[in-house]
Amino acid sequence: MTACLAVGADAAVLAHRPARVDIAMPSTSSAAAGETWLILGTDSRTTVPGEQSRYGTAQEVEGSRADVIALVRPSDSGVTIINLPRDLTINSRGMELDRLATTYVPGPQNTVNALCTGLGVPTTHLITIDMAQFADIIDSLGGIDVDVPEPVRDAYTGLNITSAGPHRLTGIDALALVRSRHPEILNNGTWVSMSEADGARRRSESTATVMRAALSAISQRSSNPLELHRLAHTIAGNITLDSDTGLSDLAALGRSASKSEKTGSTTLVDLPTGPRDDSIIVSPSQESRDLLARHGYTPKSCHPTGS
């Protein structure tokens, strides 16, 4: 009896650890859409890991944008993660163009609506994570193991990896890697700046690398009940969920992700886009529309609530 009460109390504490935000989820007329978790990594300077000078203050960099936008789709065959470029520019409200990154400035409801009207994506669950929370989660895993193709640095994010090959990254270093948009690579002893377009592509690749490494680390630790308990509390305390997503939903996603990693059925996809130049704008291509359609995301099939 005492053990049951303890378990119940622990579950109650765990359920109340995530912050909550009210979101009106869209509806869809597509039978193939299934369940879609929208994961947003934000760049608010209100709370940051490490020294504030590394990121700028909230007065210097006002507001909050979506730095990482990923669609997570669990299914019986595995988990698919579609990484959307933050610079992807879509018609989100009538003929108004918005970059996915800045759709978050008015708040997450606006991003949910923009993905619905612009790409036909009907969000069913929302998770947002700020920079400090991201670093805390990575550190709770003991860091993550990534393979770096060449030495790379970025003065804007504090990234400084001086050798190629496998590296164990702390939360701050993993954050610097996924935020890097102005990387320099070491080529024949000389640091060479990548172009804006190549830097954006590298950032997308780095995001996928970090995601896979984090999923692998979570899967490894979930086999130990004590580690799983500690990790569940850490993750739950470092995320914001929509108000209608419960602990059971989050647990089901965790089980799907862990099983998918163990069976090698996790698929990470970078959404293909049209040609990039040195501007920050990139448009959906026919290839990207075809990929989204294969997952049940089609134009005019998604309807924001109240529209």
Rank of each mutant, 00 (worst) to 15 (best):
K259C: 03
G143C: 11
T305G: 08
L241A: 06
S260Y: 01
S248V: 12
R202Y: 07
I127K: 02
S27D: 13
L292P: 07
L268M: 14
T162C: 00
R54H: 10
Q52E: 15
T263Y: 00
L186I: 02
T157R: 07
S216A: 14
I172Y: 04
T305R: 13
S204F: 02
Q133P: 06
H125C: 03
I281K: 12
L88N: 11
I82C: 10
I82Q: 11
R54W: 08
A214C: 09
T117N: 14
A70D: 03
A32P: 03
D43Q: 12
V178I: 15
M194I: 05
A33D: 13
I161D: 03
R54E: 10
A197R: 08
L5I: 12
R65G: 12
V152S: 03
I161G: 00
L247A: 11
I129R: 05
L126R: 08
H125Q: 12
Y55D: 04
L271R: 12
A132S: 15
G296T: 07
G41N: 07
V210E: 02
D173Q: 14
S260D: 03
R201M: 10
R294W: 02
L291M: 14
A114E: 10
D242M: 04
S30M: 02
H182C: 01
D139G: 07
H229C: 00
G199K: 05
R17F: 07
S279Y: 03
P151M: 01
R221F: 02
T128A: 08
S204W: 00
D147F: 01
G118E: 03
G50F: 05
T36R: 11
G306Q: 08
V105A: 12
I137C: 06
L169I: 00
G50V: 13
A213S: 14
T47L: 12
S285V: 09
